[in-house]
Simulated scan of single mutants.
Amino acid sequence: MDRAAVEPPPRKGSVLDAKIWNKLPEELLERVLLYVPLKSLVRFRCVCKKWNIYVLEDTFTDLREQVSPQRPWIVMTSTRDSMFAYDSGLGTWHDVPIPFNAYSLHVVAAAGGLLCFSNAWFHWPIMFVCNPMTQKWRQLPRMNTWMISTVGMAYDDATATFTVLVCGRLEDHIMITEVYDSKSDVWTLSGTPFSARKYGGDISLWCDGIFYCLTYPFSTLCLLSYDLSQGTWCEVPIRMPSPIMSPALVESRGTLLLVGGLEEQELFGIQIWKLDTVKQEWQELERMPLQLCKEFEAKMVPSKPLSCFGTGDSIFLSIPTNDYMPALMYDLQRRTWNWWPVSDFPATLPALNIGQSSGISFEPRLNAHV
């Protein structure tokens, strides 16, 4: 048989025929956009005003969440004008631009698709809140806090507003709590926190209407809560697992989780507990398999404890280093463990991140308003 007779005719060009694509049915266009990766969808907003408005509508974003739920991104490093984040859904790394000069700033909190940047842990800190997908941002007014100890953030989908909780010290070292409301654009002095001995942790988690944080030092570990509606702190009357190494709190779809290392009979292990709010006790949820524990322990650096963070159905345990940062990912739904990829990781980490928060997870969204 003549080979030329069965081969398809050569393509006339790679340019799409506008007469055809301009007539694409709306239903088909929507179906395509629902499955487009978020980073590509951000670029598609520039095609025309119609697309820009369409992908920001609540009906589209709600439907996209149902058919193509967004897996969390992990912000690992930040520089003056960009941040490096891991997309756990696609298994790739993204270099995301920051729409303001972030010199000496790093991400300290996340909620509802928004990131809070600050030079926290410096005197007279400043704060910015940004949606990295839309590149919209605002600088928060100056607060009274002289030195920050803990930052927390919450996003209200119903009102499209966000709240930032800051606890720290005044210049005379008196403990202070301040709450920022994006609707009024002001900081409000709130409940008096505990003494410095009972207060610590650099991130507070928002879970079911309450901010939670752990005490520091961990030798006197207990769970503290801040009721935003009442403006009051209290110590949660619950017995903490002991002893526990590098404890960390994680919020997963309205449930508070505790993650930490354990040493039992000279064996290293990592365990996950969930908070039973009815019985007021921590219940064991998962233990890392023994072989993975051995691999994880072999990579650990004695002077740098493991770091844990997560959102949605994902928990990440990383080992801070000066170069590649190995991390294990645990899927709460599938109950699976996996190392994240080595390829495309930044050659070196900015000095700003070393010794501080080594990862913050968030679920990027186009419809999160700043």
Rank of each mutant, 00 (worst) to 15 (best):
1 M>L: 10
5 A>D: 13
8 P>F: 15
13 G>W: 14
26 E>C: 05
27 E>G: 10
31 R>L: 10
32 V>C: 15
33 L>Q: 08
37 P>K: 05
46 C>N: 03
47 V>W: 12
48 C>H: 12
49 K>Y: 05
52 N>D: 01
57 E>M: 13
60 F>D: 14
61 T>C: 15
62 D>W: 03
64 R>H: 08
66 Q>K: 04
72 P>C: 03
84 F>H: 08
89 G>Q: 12
92 T>W: 01
103 Y>R: 15
109 A>C: 04
110 A>T: 10
113 G>M: 02
115 L>I: 07
121 W>A: 10
123 H>D: 08
126 I>E: 15
126 I>S: 15
127 M>D: 11
128 F>A: 09
132 P>Y: 15
134 T>K: 02
135 Q>T: 06
137 W>G: 04
138 R>E: 14
144 N>R: 08
160 A>C: 09
170 L>P: 05
180 Y>K: 12
185 D>R: 13
187 W>C: 08
191 G>L: 00
192 T>D: 03
200 G>Q: 06
206 W>G: 03
211 F>A: 04
214 L>R: 11
223 L>G: 11
224 L>M: 07
224 L>Q: 12
228 L>E: 02
231 G>W: 02
232 T>K: 00
236 V>T: 11
240 M>T: 04
240 M>P: 11
243 P>F: 09
247 P>H: 06
248 A>C: 08
254 G>C: 12
261 G>V: 02
262 L>E: 15
266 E>W: 13
269 G>R: 10
277 T>L: 01
283 Q>P: 04
285 L>M: 01
285 L>N: 00
314 S>M: 03
317 L>T: 10
318 S>P: 09
320 P>R: 09
325 M>H: 03
331 D>L: 01
331 D>E: 05
338 N>A: 12
349 L>K: 07
